[in-house]
Design a protein around this nucleic acid. Structure first.
Lengths: 386, 386
DNA sequence: CTGTTAGCGCGTTCAT
DNA sequence: ATGAACGCGCTAACAG
């Protein structure tokens, strides 16, 4: 029982017939009730009820009207990241808020990492796209541009014809990097994935930028191997956000007089505290244990703090730690971090994609600021912000 | 620059014309490439490229084919809950996983709590619906049933014609309730909202079931007031999950020889650790501080644990605490809880709504089990599970 | 392998 | 206030 197999819908013609009116009268009854006399309206409603007519077919209606009433969201990751990745979740909450305000639905396009992802994008019946951080070489970007629909990319890549929303990750990374690396001797970066391969590694910065063969592509497997062997070249990272943050951290360490090749870089494959705990354990083990860890997300930083506590490291005495995002958990944990609102950025993206923001507003910079707390050593000092 | 206003799409006829072939040849080139000679295919592709044709119009295609390629999800809450509520997020991750497996998109229908929500459901172009816990009196349920599309309700309400997925909340609540209330003298329940009004209160169980006027409706404002004054009547809760868990906790306390009117009930308005901390503070303050708190979610329980720690209460010495869901944070916190996988249940709902589960499978019970940990006193003993 | 026919269900346009 | 015609853009079904 309670069989839910789709039964055939009644159509407008049938309702019109049953009510003894024309099809248009039925259409008006639903779309513009005021243009139909109360009497006929009642007759139509009654006939509809009797036939189990559920109202105008949404697909047919949208074909005719030329809009679908839903905003497409494309992730650079498997669809489940929308609900599993804490940063994506905050961002999408902002998108969802704006959608709800405008009565628009939110369609998550099913990305799996496979080659057919492009087709899924092409087949999505939506009025616009919001793209959540993807790699420079992701083919769905071109597919989205080809639809001609309004589209906004968050985080990267930049592309002509698509709007773009992101903070200045490089500047923010330099700011927090200078904070967390202050007085450090063995700095480390706990990084997001470099490219869509999402390989987890722990290695050092490339000795010299440019010495890594094939560094620019990030696709050539040999290049990847070479990169892992001889160090991380920020420019080889095809995720723009990761790349810019690596560059910013490199800048910060350079300002302190250091070489990028001294910086250990642990790359996690997903943004989870659990994986961070494991990688942090590597960074904090052995005679060369790191004494400063800049993480690209608060979740990673919190995992790092837990590992530090477990291994008996004092923070910031033995090791300093910084995060990114200033999530709710950051303040209680005393975590120095970059404050930015992914929720606001999501809302902003949605507004742009729905055509609710003028083009002058659109390219405005997105705000961020450094929040100094107890997990870094200079937290007591008040310093002007760059 | 980078103007993204929607420009007119080229159509198939235009491409056919430009390529010097019939419309069907263009259609086949996209839908069934193998039926077209490599030569014509190339000509068509080339013409399409030249005209900027982005491929078949998704709306038109779906109208013709009779399916949309997307699964609708309806929340009993504002759309943003999909990303803000940790339980909803886990559930939706399961839904998303199945969608991705089948190349289906996931459309979140924009629920705002307003009266137009029904129209939004009716206008959603989807192939089926998954409904996440809503109130018995929510009108969208009827609207969904009226579409005739396959639909599954998670948590409640039950309705003829719609599939239903949920654990036996009452039995599970009784099981964990007996554990957490064991040896207690002043038990409390930290509850999810009772109905769509989401009023936050702290009060006692109704002295006697049935003495609360209008208890069955939950809509009548007088009844609500009376209910708040004279106590919580589980049967008045219109969220089925909440109702069944309250009943189960009442059962558990009754088995211990207690009266429902002795049980303090704190109702939170949203499922967040932060609100739980505040309510737990109320429960743990004053001369009648509670000594056993059964929470309806792990997040609520973890907030409770934090407050207990802050106020200097030993767990389980001074107060026992239980949660629900066995989330990742439960084990490290030593939290006794009901283990169930919302992710699995989400996947199950999606499969049903997509017609991938036989009707015999569909009504199978969903698994749960009690996990005893250090936050309750009987955690050492091994007892047979009911 | 390619073309022809005939709609999918509705809403804009123009008439009455 | 109501109706008739037409087409939104595409594809199943059947030729040829």
């Amino acid at each position: 029982m309670s069989e839910t197999a789709a039964r055939r819908r009644a159509t407008m013609v049938e309702v019109a017939h049953a009510a003894g009116v024309s099809v248009m009268t039925v259409s008006y009854t639903y779309g513009r009730p005021e243009r139909v006399s109360a009497d006929t309206r009642a007759r139509v409603r009654e006939a509809a009820e009797r036939l189990g007519y559920p109202g105008p077919h949404p697909g047919a209606r949208s074909l005719r009207r030329g809009r679908t009433g839903t905003l497409g969201v494309v992730l650079g990751e498997h669809l489940t990241y929308a609900f599993d990745d804490p940063q994506a979740t905050r961002f999408l909450s902002g998108v969802a808020g704006v959608c709800a305000d405008h009565g628009m639905a939110l369609t998550l396009v099913p990305i799996t990492g496979g080659p057919s992802d492009v087709d899924r994008v092409t087949e999505a019946a939506v009025d616009g796209f919001v793209v959540w951080t993807t790699a420079d070489d992701d083919p769905v970007i071109d597919a989205i541009a080809a639809t001609g629909l309004p589209a906004v990319v968050h985080g990267g890549p930049r592309r002509d014809g698509l709007s773009f929303v992101a903070v200045d990750d490089r500047a923010a990374a330099e700011a927090v990097g200078r904070e967390v690396f202050a007085g450090a001797r063995r700095p480390a970066v706990l990084s997001f994935p470099l490219d869509r391969d999402r390989i987890s590694t722990v290695t050092f910065g490339a000795a010299t930028a440019g010495t890594v063969p094939g560094a620019a592509s990030g696709i050539d497997p040999d290049a990847t191997t070479a990169g892992a062997a001889s160090g991380i070249d920020p420019d080889a990272a095809t995720f723009r956000v990761t790349r810019r943050r690596l560059l910013g951290f490199r800048d910060a360490w350079a300002k302190a007089g250091g070489e990028w090749s001294q910086v250990r870089v642990a790359v996690c494959s997903i943004n989870s505290a659990r994986e961070a705990e494991a990688l942090a354990a590597e960074l904090l083990t052995g005679p060369d244990a790191c004494d400063a860890i800049a993480a690209m997300g608060d979740e990673l930083a919190l995992g790092t703090l837990r590992t530090a506590a477990r291994l008996g490291f004092a923070v910031p005495g033995d090791v300093t730690v910084s995060g990114w995002d200033d999530t709710d958990a950051a303040a209680p944990a005393g975590l120095t971090t970059v404050a930015q609102s992914l929720r606001d950025q999501g809302a902003r993206c949605a507004r742009i994609a729905l055509g609710r923001l003028t083009s002058t507003d659109r390219d405005a910079e997105v705000a961020w600021n450094l929040v100094r707390r107890a997990s870094t050593r200079r937290s007591q000092r008040r310093r002007a912000q760059p």
